[in-house]
Structures are given as C-alpha cells and as structure tokens.
Design a protein around this nucleic acid. Structure first.
Length: 902
RNA sequence: GGAUGUAUAGCUCAGUUGGUUAGAGCGUCACGUUGACAUCGUGAAGGUCAGUGGUUCGAGUCCACUUACGUCCACCA
C-alpha cells in the first residue's frame, strides 16, 4: 500500500509521544531486553548533572554522544545499561539557596542548620524533576528505574564505607595544613573555588630592625609578625654567607627567630632578593617551611582577627593591624621603599571576599602514603592505570590520547586532598567525638575520643563532626556506588568495598566515561583514584572527552554575556534530532566547537530531507518487506551500485562508531542519504522502473533508519512506525552488509555506474557552462574501446537525468567529430553536438584543460626521472605513478587532437 | 613559571599508520526548477596546508626552531 506522509516533519508532533512509548516498552532497562544467552554487557554511567542545574549545550553534547553509544550497542544485541543520576553539588546548591534566602532577608546562620537543610532538600527535589525532564527531552534512553543521587541513602552508605576504609588504611588524616579560608563564608575553599583577581597593591621594602642584614619586600606587612625564616637564592652572593644561621630580632615589638634558608623559587631580581617566610599565611612559604623544617606561627585567625600573643595587635582586624604595622615601620625608620605593583589576589568565588591562607584543622587524603595491599600510593596506582594498566587490568584509554599528558601532569603534581568543607549540605563526615569541650570550633586535638565508622557509635555523649565532605569525594565513587540499589548491599570485605548484587558484577567496570574535557582534572582523576583504591578495579575502560561548546565568535557561552544558546529552545524550534546532530557532526574529541543557531537550522533541513526521502519512497512505491533482497535475481547497474555503497556505509559506520568517530559516521550517513540515495538512485529509479525496486527501496530505507537511529532517534522511530512495524526501531538488530552481490561485481558496478555518473555530470556541466537553453536538444556520440554494454543499457538514464540529450550514438572507437565539445571519462570518449556552439569558448576551455594536465604530467615526469625515487620508492608506488603518467598523457593527446579538430 | 592545544577555502571544520590532482558543510556567484523536499537541483570561483630549517624517493601528516592565538594548573614575596 502506498502511503501519504505530511509534507514536512514537525518534531513537536512526535517527540513526546515517541519517548513515552520507549519508556512504556521497558527496553531502557537491560533486564527487559531480548538478548541471546551469553550476550555481552555494555554500560555507561551518566555524569550526574547538578540536581538544581538547567540543561545547557554542554549537557546536550554529553547526553547525545552517550545516547549514540548506548543505542548503537543496544542494537548490536548487547545487554546495555545507561544509568542516570544527579549530583547534590553541595557548594553550587548552597549558593543558589542562599540567594533565594537573601530575598527574604535570611541567611543560613539565622535559619539554623536543620531548617536550612529542610528547605534545601525541598528545593533540590523540585529542581530534580526539571533536570530529569530535560534529560528526557534530549531523547536519552537511560534506565530510570536505576536512577541514583549522590546524596541518597545507598550512595551515602558507600561514602561512609569508603571513608572508613581509607581512614583505617591511614590514608585519611586530620591535620593542620594551610588551606584557603573565606572569613565571610567561614569555610575552607578548594583550590578551584578560589578565583584570582588582579589588583593594585603597595610593595613595602623594609628591614625587621635597624641592624638586620636583610631587607625584605611584602605587600602584607602584617603577616610578617609570623615570619620564621628568610629565604634567598643559593646563587645570591649578597646573602649566601648567612645560610643556615638563625637570627633573633625584634620586629615592631614582636620577637622573631628567623632561619636563613635557600630556595629555588626565589627570584634574585625581585624586591631585595630576600623573602621573609610566613608559613602560616602563604602557600609558597608553607612549602618552604615543609622543605626546610621551619616553625609555623599563626597570626590571623578564622574570624579575620589578629591572634593572641601579638601585643597591641591582638584582637584587631587585619585591616586595622595592617595600618598600625606600617606606621610603626615608618616611625622606626625601617622603611626603605614603597612601590605600587599589580598582583593577583585570591578571591572567594562566591562572595568575593579576600581569602586568607590559614593553617586549619581539616581532613585530608594522603596521596603519597604507601598502601600495604598495593605496596604503592594511590597516586602511583592512578598513574599506572593510564600508562601501563594496574592490578593486572588493561590500561584506561583516554580519547583523544593527548589528554593523557594532561592527566599525567595533573597526577604528578597532586597534593594531599583536603576533603572537609564547612558547608552544611552534603555528606557529613562520618567521625564522632566525645568529651570535647569546644565542639563549635573543632580546632582542639585535646581530650577527644574519636569514632570513625559507617554507623554512629553506641552510647551517649558523642557528637558528629560538623563538617561535610567535598562533593568530589562522592562523585569519585560514582561508577560503582550507582551499581548498588540498597544500602545493605554495600560492605567492607578483605579491605575493599564489596557490592552484593548482579549489576556490580555485570556492569562494572563500565565501558566508557563520556564527559566534557574541562572536568578531566577534577572528576576523572578522582574517579580513577578512588575506584581503584576502593574496589581494586578500574572504573571504566575508555574515557571520551568532548570539547566545550562555544558561541560563533569562539567565546564561552554564559548567561551573563547573553550569548548562550538554550538547547531547550532549540529543541522546540528545530527538534531534538537536529539539535543532537549539531553537537555531534563537525566536532572532534577534545576540541572545542563553535555553534550558532544557523548550524542547528541546517541540520533541521537535513532531518526534513530524510523525512522527504521516506515520504517520496512511501508515496511512490508499494514497498515489499516480505521478499528478501537476496532473492532478487536481476539487479540493474544502479541497483548494484547503491547496494554496494550501502554495504560500505554499514561497514564504515561500524568502524567509525567503534573508534568513537561520531562526526565521521554522521557525515558518511548524510552523504549517502543526500548525495547517493536522493540525488542519484531515486532520480535513476524515476526512469528505471524494475520490479525489484520496491524490495530494494524497502531494504535501503530500513537500513538507513537503523543506521541513523542512534543519532536521530525520534524521526527514525517516527518513520519506522509509518512502515507499519510492530516492534520498536530502538530494539531492531543492527544491519549487516548483504552478500547479494559478490565483491567483484560490486566493484565493477560501482566503477561503471561511476562512469555513467561522470558522463551525466559532465554533460550538465557543459550545458551550464555554454548557457545552452534547457529546451535545446543536443546529440551525443560516445566512443568506447571496451565494454559498450553497460553504457548501452544506461542510455535511457543518461538521456533522462536532466541532460537534455536527444540522441545518443554509441560506437567503438572511430574518427574525431568536427565542431563538437569533447570530454572523456577514463577510456570513454564523449562528443557533444551542440547547435550554434561558440567555438572560441570551447577552445579556451580545452586550452585550460591542457594547461592543467600538462602541469601534472611535468611533475610526474620529473618524479619518475628522479633516480632516488626510482631506486628507493616501493614498487607498487612507482607502478602506480607510471600508470598515472600514461593515463594523463593519453588524455592530453586526445584533448590536443580535439583542439586541433575544432 | 609549569603543562598542553590550535594554526588547512571568505566562515566552521575533516584529513586515519607519510603515498593519486588536499576534502565537506555553510556563505558567495551563475544557471535551472509547477509534483518527494519550510525549497531543491546542477555547476563555478576560492588553498605557498602560519613561517623557517631538517628527515625521506616522497611531508598538510614526522622532528627542531620561530610567530600568533587559546586552555588548564601554579603563583607573584
């Protein structure tokens, strides 16, 4: 039955309906898939978007690429799981809710921990529904029945278990370390939560006391009260005689003991060339302190006030004390120089307060400590995992491979990881204290009983640590924590995390992690580190990193700049399929993409083209789905040509997708559909009406729908329904090349039809070049030495396809025809008789051709005359070049004789 | 300062392990189009592959240096 489809494809009419059909079918859940018994498992765990997030083009890219992999592997017949989830993102979410509270003139402190968390949880739940709806809008075929949340009960248990495991192994320690402290937020900040801002400051150069042998320079004189050393460059002859000495002095009334040390980081040219080392309030100085065994004196406290024991400075704010110190320096006549300089200063990314580097009692993960069971540190294990493979597992591949360098660089420089945050929302640190008189500020190590455990300790008087864990701690466990579906399944056994269920055995390690290249350092490294440690297995076999989506000018998209493209808006306007294609085609791994709305509109045109291909086929042919293509006994040249092209297309798509070459796969598919199928085969079929066309076209249509499905799930499923199929396209088996034509006949078919195509193209070309009126009929004479047969058979096609030929004469090689336009395709020579031909124009055209061919021939000849080439190049290459030369020379001769004949 | 990436047509980018005359999409221009196509078709113009040097019979592809732009990290006493 022939069938009429609507004139254009309107995505909004189909997408929601199709998605709910998929959901109802249950096939997103691999347990419901009808796979063979020993089918392979394939799994991806979705990088969890922030629970309060809104879908942006970065998500859209990540989701589209993963969905392609998932749908492809599902159609290949694998047990395919895509596990979705969301991240609680403690800091981002806290910031959001604080903004909301601000509108009501509330703060988290005025609200109190309990009420604050209650509001936040409610808010997170509401937002969660928004982001998951948006994930569905993208057509993501993930298994919602297994959805996870980084802060739900099961994930929390995993977090506590891993914390305990690491603590027992001595990897987690509590210590005084220098950290970024925001005095306003009253919290530590991770390094990546600190922004740097350029500002003008005054660089003071002065001596600690009159007779002091060095002068030092600083922009923050107040911190000098905590100096415990002087650092110089080893090569600095002015100072190196003092090396190793400890100098006692009195600085504005405060006694200091300063040890002179040499450090590579000191620039002799900057300031006086000597640096007062303040370990407590500078990261570089902290490192110098560690390297040279200096003391630490803390000047500024967590409230931003000067500590006790600093005489008149104590209790003052940093600003007040700063002024006081400067005045004192000036009064005492110690100041040598004041200059204005520009320097970078750390700013809290949330509230813009200057951060204070402070030593503070925090929880850390020791990345260099040797773990007994591995006899290596987690840092070493993580390096091995990507370089050589670890614990007998194959190595993790990062795609593109050059990002492995970034990974190694990052890992090499990994410092102990501060995992505690003074934020309320998140996984509370599973540590309980007893007999602590000062629980508000947990800064005292004295008189504490400590319990570290998955569950709280029994008995009274225990109080849990007030801090929460860095969000990345729980995201680092994501690939395996998501495999559990109840807290009871998670246990510690033989020093590692065990999850007692089938999913963990079947789907972990996952096959690939697909995510944005920007979070390689933060997230990917931590997943590798944590997972190998906790489960003694890798989290994933491959990592595919996609680039960032930039605007048309190459700038980052952001709401504040107003250059952000909202994918939901695009989906509404152009459809999900077009939006997906626009972030997949024209992108390559790790490289950023520039994307404008016009690109999406362009892919909308293609979806419409595909729709019209289907519409045309369905309305013109009474498709035959019952007869197998292998049962056809007579195929025309064009049939063989398109079928062999289709075979290649399947093979190429497979190989591209297996290598994560999404863009290449998409481009090949588009080329086939648009150029080969629509522009050629369907056009030929208009004139070449054979009985087998309904079978062949049905076959081609089914195959391209299957091949396109991972890329454009909605439109392909919609068309599939129009084919009156009972089963969903999403669970059809992936197409394989057909053996209906042998390799030999397919190559000749492709070559011969290619010749026909070339002849037609040339004729059209010449008509347009000489501005031959479309109504004017012209005559062609075709000479060919060898096989006349295929041209004879394709005569009607040549005539019909917009060539405007009246007559075609085909004969074996004869004499030149005067006053004609000549061209050749391989050994086939074609003469066109065009009435009122402009001979001068034709002469010019032939001259140009001769010039082109001549230059190529000259180059080939000089190459073949080169002795080095002849002696050293591989034989087949030389042979190829000789053949080429012969061919070109031959063609040149023919053009020359035609030129003379004019 | 450390690391890393990019440079190919007017624009956005492909270009697999070195090997036919370096490709695609968009844009531009010309011609055509009343029946599958919010158009579509046919074609044209447009490239010292950033520069210099090297390896090789052969380099867009490998190596070194130079230039320009970018990203990440660290940091500016």
């Amino acid at each position: 039955m022939k069938k009429e489809l609507s004139k254009a494809y309107i995505p909004a009419d189909h997408e929601d309906e199709i998605y709910s059909e998929w959901e109802k079918s249950g096939y997103f859940n691999p347990d419901n898939l009808d796979c063979v018994k020993d089918a392979e498992y394939y799994s991806i765990v979705m990088p969890p978007p922030n629970v309060t997030g809104i879908l942006h083009l970065g998500h859209a890219t990540i989701l589209a690429l993963q969905d392609i992999l998932i749908r492809y592997n599902r159609m290949l017949g694998k047990k395919t799981l895509w596990l979705p989830g969301t991240d609680h993102a403690s800091i981002a979410t806290t910031t959001k809710i604080e903004l909301l509270l601000k509108e009501e003139s509330l703060t988290r402190h005025s609200l109190g921990r309990e009420k604050f968390l209650k509001r936040l949880t409610y808010f997170a739940q509401e937002s969660h529904d928004t982001i998951s709806k948006q994930i569905k809008k993208m057509g993501s075929s993930c298994d919602w029945s297994r959805e996870a949340y980084t802060l739900d009960k099961t994930r929390s248990k995993t977090v506590r278990a891993v914390f305990k495991l690491m603590h027992d192994d001595g990897l987690i320690y509590r210590g005084d370390r220098i950290i970024n402290w925001c005095p306003r937020c009253q919290s530590t900040l991770a390094d990546d939560e600190v922004n740097h801002e350029l500002q003008h400051s005054i660089l003071y150069t002065f001596k600690y006391s009159k007779d002091f042998p060095f002068s030092v320079s600083t922009t923050r004189p107040i911190t000098k009260l905590g100096d415990t050393g002087i650092a110089i460059n080893l090569k600095d002859e002015r100072y190196n005689k003092h090396l190793g000495k400890t100098i006692k002095t009195d600085f504005v009334g405060i006694p200091l003991e300063l040890k002179v040390v040499a450090d590579r980081s000191i620039d002799m040219e900057f300031g006086s060339g000597a640096v007062g080392v303040t370990p407590a309030h500078s990261f570089t100085d902290w490192k110098i302190m560690e390297d040279h065994g200096l003391k630490t004196i803390k000047v500024i406290n967590e409230q931003g006030l000067i500590n006790e024991n600093f005489g008149e400075f104590s209790g003052k704010t940093v600003k007040e004390a700063e002024i006081l110190v400067i005045n004192k320096i000036k009064e005492a006549g110690l100041l040598i120089d004041e200059t204005e300089i520009e320097n970078n200063i750390g700013i809290c990314y949330r509230c813009h307060t200057h951060i204070e580097p402070l030593p503070s009692l925090q929880w850390f993960i020791d990345v260099n400590k040797k773990i007994e069971k591995f006899d290596k540190s987690i840092k070493e294990i993580s390096l091995d995992a990507v370089s050589t493979g670890v614990l007998g597992k194959s190595k993790i591949n990062i795609i593109p491979t050059n990002f492995e360098k970034t990974y190694f660089n990052w890992m090499d420089n990994l410092r102990d990881w501060c995992i505690s945050r003074q934020i309320w929302f998140g996984h509370r640190i599973p540590v309980w204290y007893k007999n602590n008189p000062n629980l508000e500020i947990l800064n005292s190590k004295h008189n504490q009983d400590i319990h570290v455990g998955i569950e709280p300790p029994e008995g009274d008087g225990w109080t849990q640590d007030k801090d929460t864990l860095d969000t990345w701690f729980s995201s680092g466990l994501w690939t395996f924590s998501t495999m559990a579906n109840a807290p009871e399944q998670i246990t510690i056994q033989n020093g590692k995390i065990e999850i007692d269920n089938a999913d963990f055995k079947n789907y972990h390690p996952t096959n690939v992690l697909e995510t944005g290249r920007d979070i390689l350092p933060f997230w990917v490294t931590k997943m590798i580190l944590m997972t190998i440690y906790a489960t003694e297995d890798i989290p994933f076999k491959d990592v595919y990193l996609n680039g960032l989506v930039l605007d048309e000018k190459g700038q980052k998209m952001s709401k504040s700049k107003g250059n952000a493209i909202d994918p939901l808006n695009m989906i509404e306007k152009y459809g999900t399929d077009a939006t997906r294609l626009s972030v997949v085609i024209g992108t390559s791994p790790g490289n950023d993409v520039r994307l404008g709305e016009s690109k999406i509109a362009n892919f909308r045109n293609f979806t419409n083209k595909l729709w019209n291909i289907a519409r045309y086929i369905l309305s013109t042919y009474d498709l035959d789905a019952k007869t197998k293509i292998t049962e056809i006994n007579k195929l025309t040249l064009a049939d063989k040509w398109i079928l062999s092209k289709l075979n290649n297309l399947i093979v190429d798509t497979d190989s591209a997708l297996d290598k994560y070459q999404f863009s290449l796969a998409g481009e090949n598919l588009r080329d086939f559909c648009w150029n080969d199928l629509a522009d050629w085969y369907l056009e030929v079929a208009k004139f070449e009406k054979t009985k087998s066309k309904p079978i062949i076209l049905n076959h081609i249509l089914e195959v391209i729908l299957k091949l396109w499905h991972p890329f454009m799930p909605f439109i392909t499923e919609t068309i599939w329904k129009e084919l009156n199929k009972k089963q969903l396209l999403m669970v059809q088996s992936w197409p394989k090349p057909i053996s209906v034509i042998t390799n030999e006949s397919s190559t000749t078919a492709k070559k011969n039809f290619g010749t026909i195509r070339s002849i037609i193209t040339n004729i059209r070309n010449i008509r347009s070049q000489y501005k031959v009126s479309p109504t004017l009929k012209i005559k062609a004479t075709i000479y060919t030495k060898g096989d006349l047969d295929f041209i004879e058979k394709s005569k009607n096609i040549i005539k019909s396809l917009k060539t405007g030929l009246e007559e075609i004469a085909i004969q074996e090689k004869g004499e030149k025809i005067k006053n004609t336009v000549y061209f050749n395709v391989g050994s086939v020579e074609v003469y066109l008789e065009i009435p009122n031909l402009n001979l001068e124009a034709e002469k010019k055209r032939l001259q140009l051709e001769m010039k082109n061919k001549n230059s190529v021939i000259t180059r080939l000849q000089s190459k073949l005359n080169n002795e080095d080439f002849v002696n050293n190049a591989p034989h087949d290459i030389i042979k190829l070049e000789r053949e080429k030369l012969g061919l070109w020379t031959n063609e040149l001769e023919q053009i020359e004789s035609q030129y003379n004949n004019l």
